[in-house]
């Protein structure tokens, strides 16, 4: 079954009197447990596409079905609910609450899901253990390294067991070694049966995906299955 099915989506922004066609006509189907990279130069519309896929924004025209349900004309509150239950976001800048420790950051989406305190604490701690931060539960973001911060963000994305993980340039603020480690973590997450959509402009990051969608000027330029880059079979060394 398709998790995501978009047909002929367009998005037009008005900037002053000018209309900007961020997306012209995009159709895309993504299945369960796919690992898709969306690529494109800046201005290609990949951010807009990601916002629409992540239900942060609605298209000007076209159809968007998420697990068979149309989200094109949902209300703000319904979109918030979908984002909360079905989508896990990972951002380039991590977007952690600076004054809260790792556990509180990870349990945040569970608060909005209405999960009782004890249960969400337990789930948040488990999610942090899963990304290898067992010893960093009560550290605040400024006490963590960049890679560790992104792991907290990934734990936060995973904690609600979402249908898709949406990662927007997740390695953009990390050095290449740490970036690789994060990509290994994404690989493992994919192995466990999760669906991942990765937005990036870097080829060597996109190579981790099994399918690459290239955007240009608001249109899909190519959409192809690719040979995945070699991933060491050994478990993520950071996860101990």
């Amino acid at each position: 079954m398709n998790i995501i099915n978009i047909e002929h989506i367009a998005k037009i922004y008005k900037v002053g009197f000018e209309e900007v066609h961020a997306l012209r006509d995009v159709s895309l189907k993504i299945d369960k447990n796919e690992y898709v990279a969306i690529m494109g130069p800046s201005g290609s519309g990949k951010s807009t596409l990601m916002n629409i896929l992540g239900c942060l924004d609605t298209p000007t025209s076209g159809k968007y079905e998420f697990k068979g349900v149309s989200v094109s004309d949902m209300s703000d509150n319904e979109l918030a609910k979908i984002r909360n239950k079905e989508i896990g976001f990972v951002f380039q800048t991590f977007n952690l609450l600076a004054r809260s420790d790792a556990v509180h950051n990870v349990e945040l989406p569970l608060i909005y899901a209405g999960v009782p305190t004890a249960e969400r604490r337990e789930r948040a701690i488990q999610a942090l253990i899963d990304v290898g931060l067992k010893d960093r539960l009560h550290h605040k973001p400024n006490e963590l390294s960049g890679g560790q911060r992104q792991r907290v963000a990934i734990a936060r994305a995973l904690v609600t067991n979402p249908s898709i993980i949406l990662a927007d340039e997740p390695t953009g603020n990390l050095d290449s070694k740490t970036g690789e480690e994060i990509m290994v973590l994404f690989h493992e997450i994919h192995e466990k049966g999760n669906t991942i959509i990765l937005v990036t402009h870097e080829e060597y990051i996109a190579e981790h995906a099994a399918r690459i969608v290239r955007l240009k000027d608001g249109l899909i330029e190519s959409d192809e299955r690719v040979e995945r880059r070699y991933i060491p079979k050994t478990k993520n060394t950071l996860v101990t």
Partner: peptide, 16 residues
């Protein structure tokens, strides 16, 4: 602002 954006992204409703 950014925190509000994040909270909304991960599921906070308007009234929340």
């Amino acid at each position: 602002t950014k925190e509000i954006g994040l909270r909304k992204a991960i599921g906070a409703k308007r009234r929340t």
